[in-house]
Amino acid sequence: MSTILFFIAGFGTIAGAVGVVVLRDPFYSVLALVGHLISLAVLFLLLRAEFVAAAQVVVYAGAVMVLYVFVVAYVGGSGAGSPGDEPLGGVSGLGSSASNLRLGGAIAGGALLIELLIALLGTGLKAISGHGAGYAPGPRTFGTPAYIGNLLLTRFLLAFEAASFLLLIAAVGAVVLAGRRGGLEDEDERGPLIPLDLVRPQGTGTTAEGVGGQHR
């Protein structure tokens, strides 16, 4: 039973990854990644990592992917038609360089795959061909939320706190990067400076003052 489940989930994982790489529309790439993540959560469950699988589905396939869908809907509509983003074919002028890039990427990826397989499977570790350490189901056994929480708050407390601080920094950084609250008018989008601007108070003589909506 677990063998069948492994092959189904493994096929889904690899097919989702291939879909992310080869699909042309970024929106379909995001959907392929959602399928990949859910299959990967099944693999985590087969490896007795219950909490990691649940966090994967909730955090990744839920929250992060919704963020991706928002940004694809905001940006990707115009970006999808830009030249050079076709995984198959390519525009006439860019055709040869794009296909060279694709060929080089495939060769590099294949070489990396062979090297990884040699490094991972060619080691002398006997335990790799086994089914893992002994496992007895129970409420506080390996991989359950209680086990993970106990480890996070005792042995890995420093990593836990560092991760929370990193999340805080990332939230502040995202607000700084994407936030522009001062209205649509930017510093360099204002009209050219005329000599009268130097002698009068800033903002007077504009349409904004006339309608009483001066906001600066």
Partner: peptide, 8 residues
């Protein structure tokens, strides 16, 4: 390596 859209 191959894709050009930063989202992808």
């Amino acid at each position: 390596i191959t894709r050009r859209n930063p989202l992808v």
